[in-house]
Design a protein around this nucleic acid. Structure first.
Lengths: 149, 149
DNA sequence: GCTTGACCTCAACTTAAGTTTAGGTTTCAG
DNA sequence: CTGAAACCTAAACTTAAGTTGAGGTCAAGC
């Protein structure tokens, strides 16, 4: 019992409507190699319907902060270029989750540092780890430091 | 008992060293109006030492995701353009914190959606709220939807 | 048979946040 | 006196992710 594979082609306009991505951006993605199309006899692009999913994944990846270059790299690693399977999705999804976790951690640290700093109020250029991330305290010996400005 | 105000001038090279921001970027910031300098007799820029703090704040703001334009706007709202006081910092700091909170919330939502989605595995273009943020389900009536691809 | 809408290509433009390059001074150390 | 270090300006270049514009084709509807 083989499922029939029914590509069912859609135009760039329809792809744009279905994904919320502008036609010009879709052309752009195609130039970058993120999606592929066939042409009909009038030279119009025809996309297999499942490209909708690829475009949607691209959008999710962008929202998590990946560049199109990164995304192209990820997509190229997939077993099958246009058809995104469940395994593909599990792979991508967990990779993207780690990236998101990394980002969230970073921002949270920054926010906590900010909380400390506002509470502390020292605004010291010498001591403040927020204002002074490339800290080189210790060079000058320990102990209280003057806030020389 | 008045404190003497001792500006103590520093060169662009020193400012660059102290902040970790390249000289060309500092020139750029000056063109954009984010920092100001005086010139000495050889036409070299001289910055009052507390500009270091302004540049540090610019970096923090950038790390929290503000554009230089935003930052310029914030800095212009300060009581005093170059000298950043404790009150200034409290003002800015809490504004930036909210922005950070907003971002963290967004990313967290995206990550949780992703967790759901990977667990669910449906990858349905019709139903998935991750793949389909501009959802218009309901248009077609409720009930189970075919994953037509 | 003409207009309209959807599509095509290619090239130039846009914004942000700088960097790079080219050419020109000044100042200090040897 | 000579050369290097630090500085100056102005303009062009860079990258990302597209957008905009000009000019052209094609099929459908009136």
């Amino acid at each position: 019992m083989q499922k029939k594979s029914v590509p069912e082609w859609i135009s760039v306009g329809v792809l744009s409507e279905r994904t919320g991505v502008s036609v010009s951006a879709l052309h752009f993605y195609e130039r970058k190699g993120l999606i592929k199309s066939q042409r009909n006899k009038s030279n119009h692009r025809q996309y297999p319907k499942h490209v909708i999913r690829v475009v949607s994944l691209i959008q999710v990846a962008q929202r998590t902060g990946f560049s199109l270059e990164d995304i192209l790299f990820e997509l190229e690693g997939l077993s099958n270029r246009t058809r995104v399977t469940l395994e593909d999705w599990e792979q991508l999804g967990s990779r993207w989750q780690s990236e998101l976790d990394r980002k969230i951690t970073q921002l949270t640290e920054l926010r906590d540092m900010m909380t400390d700093c506002i509470g502390c109020g020292c605004l010291s250029l010498e001591r403040c780890r927020l204002l002074n991330p490339y800290d080189e305290l210790g060079k000058k010996g320990a102990g209280p430091q003057l806030m020389t400005e």
